[in-house]
Amino acid sequence: MSITIGQYYPGDSFVHRLDPRTKLIFLFVYIFGVFMCDSLIGFCLGGVVLALAVYLCRAPFLSVIKGLRGVLYIAVFTAVFNILFTKEGSVIFKAWILTVTDVGVLTSAKVLLRLALIIIMSSVVTLSTTYMALANAIECFLDILKPIGVPAHDIAMMTTIALRFVPTLFDDLEKIKLAQMSRGASFDEGSFMQKIKSIIPLLIPLFVSSFRTADVLALAMEARCYRGDVGRTKYKVLSFCAADHIVTGFVILFGAAEVFLRVWR
């Protein structure tokens, strides 16, 4: 089974058992920290933290990396672009209209490293957290905004359902694509306008089928007594335990360290 980005991998590791709120806070602070870091020591620190998280998550990371290939290609492409178009610094290599400078190489390497760290850390979080748990965490954070009229529960429920139906939609899209290809449709030939036009036979059936799915889902939810968050209890109760406090403290230290390294370098 291949693992794609954003997918949950069932397990019972230390990371799996953490409160989803902890994981979200962790991810945000980590991303902040990674954007802060600019020095070798800063990047090392980020790498060590990531390695620790990966180790504690106990998911099959080789297949995860494979699943991330697409995203990593984009990152590498961006980096190469960055190298070729940076004109500052001393020139290392020059041929035809291509110029490579030391500053260019360095900035690109940093961008690439940051992206890699962030993407892999995000996968650690999505691999170890179910959609429901993520939604619960989001709902909990948004609860603070409830007094000013933010519908926290609805946003959370919509997020869960959207995530739950992503694979279903992709399945449908694949089937629609095959059905139209059987009728001689092609999706990668012709001019730009033709390509745009060729999407219509995909989009309309996809819309029709997702509206139908939405209809049935709404009925099924109603039949199971759903009526918003009125009198609703939670199966997965969020509770901060010792491990959550430690992890949160740890990541705040990490963030502070990165800021320190950046400012007092």
Partner: peptide, 24 residues
């Protein structure tokens, strides 16, 4: 495919129970 709300089996079965306000 259209009537399952959650990504994990136990969470899906819990959905109706959550709506009726049952104890954990």
């Amino acid at each position: 495919d259209s009537q399952i709300v959650a990504g994990i089996v136990d969470e899906d079965i819990a959905f109706g129970l959550e709506n009726t306000g049952l104890e954990r």
